[in-house]
Design a protein around this nucleic acid. Structure first.
Length: 438
DNA sequence: GCGATCAGCT
DNA sequence: CACAGCTGATCGC
């Protein structure tokens, strides 16, 4: 697509329409409360959470779009000044709440920007996403795929989140007398916590700001800020350290669970000195090509252990909101892009997806999807609404009625965890969970 | 004093 | 190795 038309998760000058896939900070760099450049298209949930991250943002600039619908924009080619129509459809990304991919079509062809996404082919909701995508493509292949290449390396091999979630539950169940702390971020991993709560019939502690987020997401009665109500606490990942755990263990037996854990394959026998420090380099080298820790009978057996003998309190569980290598491959085979580019390029270890998956690209081969026939037999086309929603860039604002509440941060009574309360901004725009509904 | 940006840490 | 995000220092206004 020509430059100057649309930007996805990029906030520099020069585009006519801006798209936000989800609210993680690395996708909002350059976006701030003072934004006034142009409207921003995002999912309903992202719009709902938006004021929480950007308190004084002019919400009339947000355009809520729904998954599975086509939308139409009238834009101007910067080069020729001629008008063109760009159509786009949001598609579930199954990354964090509100996360979507954006599929574009226009004079430039077909383009998909995945944002961050997880493609667990076997889960029911992933089937839904798959059907939505295939129906939207209608047999066309992608001219350009912008892919979440976070784990674009064959060594990144981890199970579906349902399996990892069960591992977390197993760890908790096997420590009936322990307090449990789970490291999470400001958004994401909600389903893991819900599952724990449901299976173990317990509430889960979160810090006050996170409770507000949970309420915005519609999770009531499951989370609490009262430590006395539960032995399971979800804490900010940045407050989660070996020191924290050792401190906590002076008062009460406590284990920590890291559900994001990059070192999924770290084994106790490796004898690392610490989780995050310099020795991780040697870990990384050791595990290249290693098969230990791999899936065995549906379980990553090596991971049901503390990651390190010396820090027996910490468990690393391979729960990831990004697609693993095998899932990326499956996704690329499904959409058969003619060209492809990674969206994660900031790190020094950027892996061009073409390096591993280039053989799956190219325009020579005619499009033939094994799945086409199956899709038709499914009769699952109902997922995609045939009608077109129109929304011109310059048009009206969204009807995001503000409903101000007298917002309190939640209860206090916090404990030894470092810095949990520090940096807690007073949120002035406290949207009720329902204010953006319908 | 404020926001934006960056380095550092986990 | 690096995710995603917080903290704190610094710079420009």
């Amino acid at each position: 697509m020509e430059k100057g038309l649309v930007s996805v998760d990029r906030w520099t000058e020069g585009s006519q329409a801006y798209f936000l896939t989800h609210l993680h900070s690395d996708h909002t760099q350059g976006l701030s409360s003072t934004w006034s450049r142009a409207p921003i298209f995002c999912s309903r949930i992202t719009a709902k959470l938006f004021p929480f991250k950007f308190p004084d943002f002019n919400l009339s600039l947000l355009r809520v779009v729904d998954v599975g619908f086509w939308y139409s924009l009238s834009l101007v080619f910067p080069s020729s000044a001629s008008r063109t129509t760009v159509e786009f459809m949001p598609i579930h990304a199954h990354h964090c709440p509100g996360a979507v991919m954006f599929l574009f079509r226009g004079d430039f062809g077909w383009m998909l920007y995945t944002g961050d996404f997880r493609w667990e082919a076997n889960s029911e909701r992933a089937q839904l996403g798959r059907t939505t995508l295939l129906n939207a493509l209608k047999g066309h292949r992608l001219d350009v795929l912008h892919l979440d290449n976070t784990y674009c390396n064959p060594s990144y091999d981890f199970p579906p989140r349902s399996v990892a979630a069960q591992q977390v539950v197993d760890i908790i169940v096997s420590h009936p007398e322990h307090d449990i702390i789970i490291g999470i971020d400001t958004l994401g991993k909600e389903e893991l916590l819900l599952r724990i709560s449901r299976l173990l019939k317990t509430k889960i502690w979160v810090w006050p700001e996170r409770l507000q987020t949970m309420h915005l997401l519609g999770f009531h009665h499951i989370f609490t800020t009262k430590t006395t109500l539960t032995r399971i606490r979800a804490v900010p990942r940045y407050s989660f350290s070996i020191d924290t755990l050792e401190e906590l263990n002076k008062k009460c037996p406590t284990i920590g669970i890291m559900p994001s854990g990059v070192p999924w394959l770290m084994k106790p026998s490796d004898g690392a000195d610490n989780l995050f420090g310099s020795l991780l380099t040697s870990h990384y080298k050791k595990r290249q090509g290693s098969t230990s820790g791999r899936l065995q009978n549906g379980k990553f057996k090596d991971n049901i252990k503390p990651v390190d003998g010396r820090h027996r309190y910490i468990y690393s569980v391979p729960y990831s909101d990004h697609s693993c290598y095998a899932e990326l491959q499956e996704f690329i085979e499904l959409v058969q892009p003619i060209s492809m580019k990674g969206i994660v390029s900031s790190s020094c270890c950027y892996v061009d997806p073409v390096y591993y998956f280039g053989r799956l690209c190219g325009g020579s081969k005619p499009l033939e999807r094994l799945s086409d026939k199956q899709e038709k037999e499914d009769g699952s086309e109902r997922v995609v609404a045939p009608e077109m929603k129109s929304c011109l860039v310059s048009a009206k604002s969204t009807n995001t009625d503000r409903k101000r509440k007298t917002g309190k941060g939640g209860s206090t009574g916090i404990h030894a965890l470092r810095r949990v309360r520090r940096g807690a901004k007073i949120i002035q725009n406290d949207f009720s969970a329902d204010s953006l509904e319908s």
